[in-house]
Design a protein around this nucleic acid. Structure first.
Lengths: 205, 205
DNA sequence: TCATTTAGATGATTCTTGTCATCTAAATAA
DNA sequence: TTATTTAGATGACAAGAATCATCTAAATGA
């Protein structure tokens, strides 16, 4: 009741719009977030819209209030995931001891946890081959995202893009996690990741 | 007419069976080969059975004379592609100068041609993320294939599996080609591949 | 109070899959 | 000749997808 009274109180135009707009914005964010998890976990094509909407607590029909197509959602989810990944790296870029921070990031990337946690891990490693088959309108967000990651890595290493070292490092990180995911989880995994960390350190040096 | 006469001539049982069996075997091989190309080029899920059968010069309905399901074809196509890739490497394993032969293989893998030629290139690099989502019955052929590749690489380097060097090398190769394919083709590609070749050489050394 | 807007739900559509029963044409065997 | 086998073709089917028109319930504004 109190809520209703409050709602009925006069508000500024911005406030009035904000109430519903906020709801929609929250739904929007939930859809994007769940999509980014499911795409990484099960693949883009293998994930249906209804699965995503259900995960977001909605039904499939409401989807087109938020996106004009599945492709548009893929773009949003990809950008979302890359942005999150870059902000993980941002620490390495701004930290006092860049090298130490970068080392911590590399150790996190080349950890067994990351190998197992595909849904919350690096979107490039998780969706690599599928990303190459996306339609042209997705290529630009993708290429921009890759370029962004490379810029941040280059800065953390101590140079500026285009940096062959940053490229070699990213390639090595992605390849190592991908290969680890193609092999059965066993005791060798850790020694393999150790070898990958060693190589990564040599690339940075 | 002559042909008919020849056909009507008595043959041994083996010969008689061989004529049709050979036809079927050839169709079978064409299906597997075209599938392995299309899966790498456009993705496994994105490639329909009718597309594959048309590419093999047949119609979609005949498919189930050769395979019990699409999954069975995926397994056959994957094994086919990995076997072909390994035989490319075999030279490096048996050559007099193993290191030089391995160097040639690495140069070929990290070439612009391989980056562009996804359909005929390394199946692991081409289908990476999709392979991880395949059903359990495909995991064993896949893991065996990866293990086989690693064994051959380890032998070429001069050790035996499990070899952290071979693992790090394969990871770097796969990652470099994948990353190159995620970026727009431009002049930087060659300098990036150059950096990747340098790192590969350091891993082997 | 009543009219308008809109986020989300329902349900239908259209398309594409993988799958399979059935038909054909040719080759083999009797 | 006639019967049998079978690789491949035809066509249908069910399941699942993306998409979208329409309905609903609630909130806004007059």
């Amino acid at each position: 009741m109190i809520i209703i009274q409050i709602v009925n109180h006069p508000k500024t135009e911005i406030d009035m719009a904000r109430a519903t707009a906020l709801e929609k914005s929250r739904s929007h964010d939930r859809i994007v977030h769940q999509a980014s998890l499911l795409f990484r976990e099960n693949g883009i094509e293998a994930t249906g819209l209804s699965e995503i909407m259900t995960a977001a607590g909605l039904t499939h029909g409401g989807f087109y209030r938020h996106f004009k197509s599945k492709h548009a959602l893929v773009a949003a989810a990809l950008t979302h995931a890359i942005t999150a990944a870059v902000s993980d790296m941002a620490e390495a870029e701004t930290a006092a001891d860049k090298r130490a921070a970068l080392g911590r990031y590399v150790a996190l990337y080349l950890s067994p946890e990351h190998v197992q946690n595909r849904a919350q891990g690096c979107p490039l490693a998780a969706m690599q081959s599928e990303l190459a088959h996306q339609p042209p309108e997705l290529q630009k967000p993708l290429e921009d995202g890759v370029a962004h990651v490379l810029t941040v890595l280059a800065a953390a290493i101590g140079g500026s893009a285009p940096s062959p070292k940053a490229q070699a490092l990213l390639a090595h990180l992605m390849g190592a996690v991908s290969l680890a995911r193609l092999s059965p989880p066993n005791v060798e995994t850790e020694t393999f990741l150790q070898a990958a960390r060693k190589t990564a350190a040599e690339i940075i040096a």
